[in-house]
Write a protein that binds this DNA or RNA. Structure first.
Lengths: 203, 203
DNA sequence: CATAAATGGACAACCATTGTCCGGTTAGCT
DNA sequence: AGCTAACCGGACAATGGTTGTCCATTTATG
């Protein structure tokens, strides 16, 4: 009588609560994985057919166990948000507030930069389903920033919202003014941003 | 025997080089203005019907003197790029390299932030037509940064590409993680970024 | 006031999308 | 092994939003 843990798991039981056949489950897993990669690369505008193609199944299979494209995409984003929240938790466990913040920033920005479609999704208007996950993540970022401020390692005039926007910003843009970004541009951006955030060491 | 100055002006003469009737010219001007606002608000994905609607004319009028939607959008972007290049020129005229850079940064980021669709367009793959304008703008930014570095007012390890990306970044994101950005978030972002770019004053 | 030019919006043509259906295949139980 | 319910793939219908055309009506201008 175990409850499904995640939005993705929820796709693996049918309406009567029975477990589907093995091949069906396998295909759902493939579809979820394909959706995640597709969202990362193409963005949330990806089509159901494209996801099915990447998963190596037909659209019929897609719609057999997945209520709609929207549900699948939300499940994927839900999973990603959960992962990011986990990164924040790890950062909060770091005894050094500045180091923790930097670690989180690097992982978060990297995730967003490497799967730009996910960044795009988190930037746009998110569906209601994700409200709770988003709130949890915001709250964690708030704590990370507050902790750093209390320790006096970041500028006092910076809010957690500023940090959220700056990190999202550092991850954006795989090109600008016609020039393609280096694969590690996000690292260079982040270095500058973190330097700007840090409390001036000498006064 | 005057040559048309800009891509927009070029829309005002017909194939035989004659000047169209006054009402026709007025409508083209309205369409261009509407297109600019529409691109700023909606993005480059805006439809011809939407632009016509905003201009207060029918689609027939749209297509009478405008070869295609694409041409109009490119003309608008061409105009915007020209304006930005002009801002850069003003900044280069500033005797103080740091102040010039900051002035340009503020105007550029503001322009991109307030018309986010234009930022989106400049971030995506730009049409070949704009290559020259883009190159000119890049070159100017390069000079701005080089001048600042020579004067020792910005970090030595920062390239003009870094600056281009960081400014684009500061302007992005009217929301993230479900929170809508304040109208002036770009100012807060830019402050941090410029602080990060500035050469450390104390050693 | 004559007439060539311009207008606007219904319309056709097109394309990409989501989601359904069904003849053929297969997993998994007995 | 064999049976059957479950599953599979992809052709297909339905939809919606797009660009661009056409023509009966209106309007600018010599």
């Amino acid at each position: 009588m175990e409850q499904p843990r995640s939005a993705v798991d929820r796709l693996l039981v049918d309406e009567s609560g029975r477990r589907p056949r093995a091949d069906a489950r396998r295909n759902v897993e493939r579809l979820v994985a394909a959706a995640r990669h597709a969202v990362a690369e193409v963005g949330v505008g990806v089509s159901a057919h494209e996801i099915a193609r990447r998963a190596g199944v037909g659209v019929g299979t897609f719609y057999r166990r997945i209520p709609s494209l929207e549900v699948l995409l939300e499940a994927v984003l839900d999973e990603v948000l959960d992962e990011i929240a986990h990164l924040a938790d790890q950062a909060l466990d770091d005894p050094d507030p500045w180091h923790g913040l930097c670690e989180f920033a690097a992982r978060y920005v990297r995730l967003r930069a490497e799967s730009c479609g996910i960044g795009e999704a988190l930037g746009g208007a998110c569906p209601e389903t994700l409200a709770e996950r988003l709130a949890g993540l915001r709250e964690r970022i708030g704590r990370l920033v507050e902790r750093a401020r209390t320790a006096g390692v970041i500028r006092a005039d910076v809010t957690w919202q500023d940090v959220a926007f700056l990190l999202a910003a550092a991850a954006t843009g795989d090109r600008t003014l016609g020039i393609p970004a280096d694969e590690r541009q996000w690292e260079r951006n982040l270095r500058i941003v973190l330097d700007g955030l840090r409390a001036t060491r000498c006064r």
